[in-house]
Each structure stands twice: as C-alpha cells, then as structure tokens.
C-alpha cells in the first residue's frame, strides 16, 4: 500500500522489517504457553494502537483473511479443545497483525527495490533478469483494469445475445483477447528501448 501512515516504521529499511517479521514468527512458534502468547499479542496490539493505528484498521478490513483464521480455530476447538484453539488464534492473529504493519509501512516502490536486490543472485546464475521484475509488476498493475474491462465486455455480449453465462464461454474470449495484445505490448517495449537486454525478433505481420 502506498498509503502514508505517518508511522516512524516507514523509515526502517524493508529488509529489516522482513527480518523482524520472520524472527517474531519463529519466537511465537517456539512457545505454546498461553501466558506468553497472550502477553505477546497484547503487547503487539497496544504498540500498534499507539504507533501505527492505520495498520490495525487495515488488519480489521482484511476480514476474509481473519475469517480463515477463525474457521481453522473453530475446527481445532472442535477436534482438540479450546486450549489448542486459543494458542492458534493468538499466534496467527498476532502474526497477521505484525505482517500487516510491515505491509502498510512499506511502499510498493521500496518492496520492488528489495525484491530486485534479492533477485540479483538469480541474475548471476542466469535464471532471471532482476530489472525485469519491476517492469513485470508494473505490467500486471497496468493491465488488470483492461483485462477486467474485457471480461465485463464479454459478459455484456453474452447478455445482449441472450446466451447463458457459462465459465467456459466467458473465460476463453477474455484469455485470447488479452494474450492477443502481447505482440503489440512487446513491440512497444522493444521500440522504446526499455529493456537493455532484449533482442530484435524477426517477425512480420499482416498489416
């Protein structure tokens, strides 16, 4: 999220925040004591309310995620008793809140930089080009609204012709229509010299 939270955590490098998140998750799994887990959860919640209230809001907004935690906790309570369920609830609840804090206090740009830096070893092995990662992420964000628009157009066309909305006939035109623009987009990327490592491709078209 690019939302400014006004939290001091925005100044902490993403790599440090990720390491902290990882350490906290390990610590919470080392103990099964309800007292320790309960006080950890309480501390995290209080700290968040004091220093990063926006994260708590976002955490509550992510109810589909909290719902899966609740469902698994109920399932555990039914099978293994309340004690176990409570341990699970405290652990996963705390971790999801801490993770949300990291997410809301780190901009997408910072994340892309971190991912790109992490991918440099892969580049040395010849597996991937690290700089392509930012472009790929940008491409997805750019074209999700277009693909969605295309899907809605296919739905409209079905309605106009009185066809039943079947997943097969809805999805195939969306996929083909979307992939058809790949040639144009790739040409544009090459023509603008955005990637330094691409090779011209011999190809002619019908126009």
């Amino acid at each position: 999220m690019r939302t400014p939270t006004g939290s001091i955590l925005e100044c902490v490098p993403p790599a440090v925040k990720l390491a902290a998140l990882f350490s906290i998750s390990v610590l919470l799994f080392l103990t099964g004591s309800l007292t320790l887990l309960g006080s950890a959860a309480g501390t995290v919640l209080v700290l968040c309310l004091l220093f990063c209230r926006f994260a708590v809001l976002q955490w509550l907004k992510a109810w589909p995620l909290l719902l899966t935690i609740a469902a698994v906790a109920l399932w555990t309570a039914y099978n293994d008793g309340y004690q176990e369920a409570l341990v699970l609830l405290l652990r996963l609840g705390t971790l999801s809140l801490v993770a949300t804090v990291v997410t809301v206090t780190t901009s997408i740009g910072e994340f892309i930089e971190t991912v790109t830096r992490a991918a440099i070893p892969l580049e040395r092995l010849g597996i991937a080009n690290a700089r392509d990662i930012g472009l790929a992420i940008g491409l997805v964000m750019r074209f999700v609204p277009d693909v969605r628009q295309r899907y809605l157009a296919v739905v409209d066309a079905h309605r106009a012709r009185g066809l039943p909305l079947r997943p097969t006939t809805l999805i195939a035109p969306m996929v083909i229509g979307t992939l058809k623009s790949a040639d144009d987009i790739a040409d544009a990327i090459d023509a603008r010299g955005i990637r330094t490592n691409s090779h011209p491709q011999k190809r002619a078209e019908n126009a």
Binding site: P64, L65, L95, A99, T103
Partner: peptide, 11 residues
Amino acid sequence: GRGGLAVFLSP
C-alpha cells in the same frame, strides 16, 4: 481482495 505479507502467515 486479500494481499500483503499476512497472507503468508495465514492458515
């Protein structure tokens, strides 16, 4: 609409 690191620590 799920996303974020919390997803990786969910069940």
